[in-house]
Design a binder for these strands. Structure first.
Lengths: 358, 358
DNA sequence: ATTAATTTTGTGTGCGCACACATTTTTTTT
DNA sequence: AAAAAAAATGTGTGCGCACACAAAATTAAT
């Protein structure tokens, strides 16, 4: 009838201290109306001093309402799509949170189609979820979405891409510039001089900020270390949606040039590796991004030397878990969460594959 | 009064199906005595078909008994001790599991003193915990410990080092051989030929299996890639406990030899980096292990080029969580859990520091 | 056959909280 | 001043489970 043995106070204990009933304490805790201001103030004061935290088990068990989270990400079009990667992390979060009366709905959009994004944001807002995680790839639509979320007081977190000066609960993703910087290090470490191709293979123009930040980081490394003059850097951009690409441009380019290194600042790296393997040309050092099946294949066959990884599953998993902790547990959460910049080679790659099965 | 909306069956539902009371189902579920064999068989059959999983919240809330886990690891003697690293992961696990009426006690021993290990295992067995995590560094004492744990039917998990053919619930740690193999790749990638020193700086002899496995992996890479003839590999072993070491041996060695690369197959890497920075000699490429403060310092000052990381916090965290899941949630868990072989450089190191604060 | 001992089964309470509902107190209206 | 309305506070129930205890059914002993 008194306190718990471990010193953890219950609502009943607070009520006793304040000389009120548990119902009144409950009202204050949940900011429900119908409490005399003085009483409320008194209870709040007690609450401050004792640092009450509700019993998560009892809370979940007694609660009738589900917490509904939404994650909005680009659709994974095929196995070699970057966005197929976070899904296992989402699933893991779903499994873990199901015990806590929390459901996670996955909404997808076409990342080449701004309208599909906007449409989905409208559908999500109609659902009035308790929290939203999304990748703000389209600046304008995202801004509008954010404003409406804030009007409804729906907390949100970013994944993959970040927007500055927002009231997002958290961001999970990589520092694109630094990942490029690291790639620069790796390139120069293995290749003391020569010609380098920065190859942007993209599905939609213009080049996304991610990709250009990576390139900037890559070049900055060379400048910071005063080795820019050791390399001839070529810059090629290919829209994979165009007919006969990337073969047309690549054939053309490699007819005229011999490359010692190639840096592909996105996950389409396997496309150039495939091309190089087919040619009877000097094999350049290739550095790219992400552990897609295609990239893994060409890493294992030796064409790709380094892949920069960023644990997309972990990003999604942590984003969901963190938003949950913020909303349900009222925990303080860290806003800026940079993923590690994993350097993956043929030799250590198998130890990065496991994350997906956890 | 009927089923739950989400199709999840409760004890009461099972009782209804079996035409018995909840008490009887409870006895079967917990394998408590006092149930007529036929009744038990019938309920077990139903249980098989419906795949019952108890409501974790209600279970925890109603349970009176705490689950007690123990983790036994070497004491962290100073800030540059490897074993100070997992502690934050242990703490995180403690925090998370406290909601589930699960406590984790940390027991430490002196990893140069087998007796201190044995003593602790005795103390732990007296406590009769529900599960134990430990690092089986001393083979004989560990074997005996395992036998006694199995007699008491106490499940256990390994961390850092693994023992084959054991009934451990799980193992969390790195593949030492492959980490050395990866180090070999990095060394040869940046250093196409020259003289390499494999430097074992240890506090106690003989050299641990970990360290020799790493060295084996390192050399194997050179052989596998037919580049052994490009390098003159020197092998030096220094006991740091001896007077004037490592300076004496190192001074002696570097008076006679000039090294292009140094591979230190353990976390004492900062000791050689410190030595090298003080000398006015040619700066070799240094590859070592673990993100200890000392190593970070010399990485940031440019003396150490690569550190192989293994996320010790994550290892400890996951080991505890997994043992909990096995014991309390009766989940199937993966037995062999290799950590990633993280390649850390000056450029990406900051993104590996965060794990400790999570 | 009756009672006692034993096995087997059933029932009730509480874990801490959310939330619906009941009661009391205060304020407003007539 | 009494009645009605509103505000403030209190009480009770159930979430699903563990576990102590009560009751019934069976078996053993007299």
């Amino acid at each position: 009838m008194t306190q718990l043995k471990d010193g953890q106070l219950r609502i009943r204990d607070i009520a006793e201290i304040a000389n009120v009933s548990t119902g009144t304490v409950d009202r204050v805790l949940h900011n429900r109306p119908g409490v005399k201001p003085e009483t409320k103030a008194q209870i709040l004061k007690i609450l401050e001093n004792i640092d009450y935290s509700p019993n998560l088990m009892a809370k979940t068990l007694a609660s009738k309402r589900d917490t509904r989270l939404v994650i909005l990400i680009p659709a994974a079009k095929d196995i070699n799509s970057y966005w197929s990667q976070p899904l296992s992390g989402v699933q893991q979060a779903i499994d873990e949170l199901s015990s806590f009366r929390t459901v996670v709905d996955i909404y997808t959009f076409d990342d080449f189609d701004k309208d599909s994004f906007t449409q989905m944001t409208n559908r999500i807002l109609k659902e009035k979820p308790d929290g939203v995680i999304f990748s703000p790839v389209f600046f304008d639509s995202s801004s509008s979405f954010i404003h409406r979320l804030e009007n409804f007081e729906i907390p949100y977190a970013f994944i993959d891409a970040n927007l500055e000066d927002c009231s997002n609960v958290a961001y999970f993703g990589q520092d694109a510039f630094r990942s490029g910087y690291t790639a620069g290090k790796l390139m120069s470490f293995g290749l003391k001089s020569g010609s380098i191709l920065v190859l942007k293979l993209v599905n939609n123009l213009p080049i996304s900020k991610h990709v250009s930040d990576r390139q900037d980081g890559f070049c900055k490394y060379m400048r910071d270390n005063n080795i820019s003059d050791k390399y001839q850097i070529h810059d090629v951009e290919i829209d994979l949606k165009q007919k006969d690409e990337p073969y047309k441009t690549l054939t053309d380019f490699f007819d005229k040039n011999k490359m010692d290194g190639i840096y592909v600042p996105n996950s389409k790296t396997y496309r150039i590796a495939e091309f190089i393997e087919k040619q009877k040309i000097h094999k350049p050092l290739i550095i790219g991004y992400d552990m897609l099946p295609g990239n893994i294949k060409y890493m294992e066959s030796g064409s790709i030397t380094f892949l920069i990884g960023q644990r997309p599953e972990e990003q999604a998993y942590k984003a969901i878990k963190t938003l949950f902790e913020h909303i349900v547990l009222h925990k303080e959460v860290k806003k800026l969460n940079y993923s590690s910049i994993d350097i993956i080679t043929e030799e250590n790659i198998e130890f990065y594959k496991d994350f997906k099965n956890e």
